[in-house]
């Protein structure tokens, strides 16, 4: 149980029990004094369930930019401005024929979009033991980050070259 929940539960339970105890003490006292069980304290626990603040209508602004006067569209293709989307930049081309939009093409998908298309399993983590094992003695050549001519002398490649001199 989380600390906040535990503390809350402990406090609430203790409070409720204390209230009950208090009310009970009065009841016992009253019954002892008068011998009549008075109806208990008015422990108003009415949790008014009014609440429900109307969830302000999340009206989805239907982004449909359907122009009212669609008849005004001439045949041809129209290229829109570049729009930034969450998935990268997109440019749209509309093809109009007979005054109606007949095709919508995504023209330009920029780097972000290109990258989003490149996925998957091309490279994966591997263990060292999975790489083909070899000792410096049984390879023919050595690949490494560029060695300067000074560093060459102490390199594995130098040893190989010396062996084949």
């Amino acid at each position: 149980m989380r600390a906040r929940a535990a503390a809350g539960a402990a406090l609430a339970s203790a409070g409720i029990l204390a209230a009950g105890w208090q009310a009970g003490a009065q009841a016992i006292e009253a019954s002892q004094v008068t011998g009549v069980t008075t109806s208990g304290g008015t422990n108003g626990t009415a949790s008014s369930g009014s609440g429900s603040s109307s969830t302000s209508g999340s009206g989805t602004t239907g982004g449909g930019s359907r122009a009212a006067s669609s008849s005004a569209l001439k045949d041809g293709s129209y290229t829109g401005a570049i729009e930034s989307t969450r998935f990268g930049n997109v440019q749209v081309q509309l093809v109009v024929s007979g005054g109606k939009i007949t095709d919508v093409k995504a023209l330009q998908l920029t780097d972000a979009e290109r990258r989003s298309q490149m996925i998957s399993a091309t490279a994966a983590p591997i263990l060292r033991s999975e790489v083909l094992q070899a000792q410096s003695g049984n390879v023919d050549t050595v690949s490494g980050a560029t060695v300067t001519s000074d560093a060459y002398l102490s390199s594995l490649q130098a040893a190989l070259d010396a062996a084949h001199a």
Partner: peptide, 18 residues
């Protein structure tokens, strides 16, 4: 937890401790 406490509290409120 409060509902459990309430069950006991209601008993106590009735003078159960007596």
């Amino acid at each position: 937890w409060a509902s459990g406490a309430a069950a006991v509290a209601l008993y106590l409120a009735d003078g159960g401790a007596g």
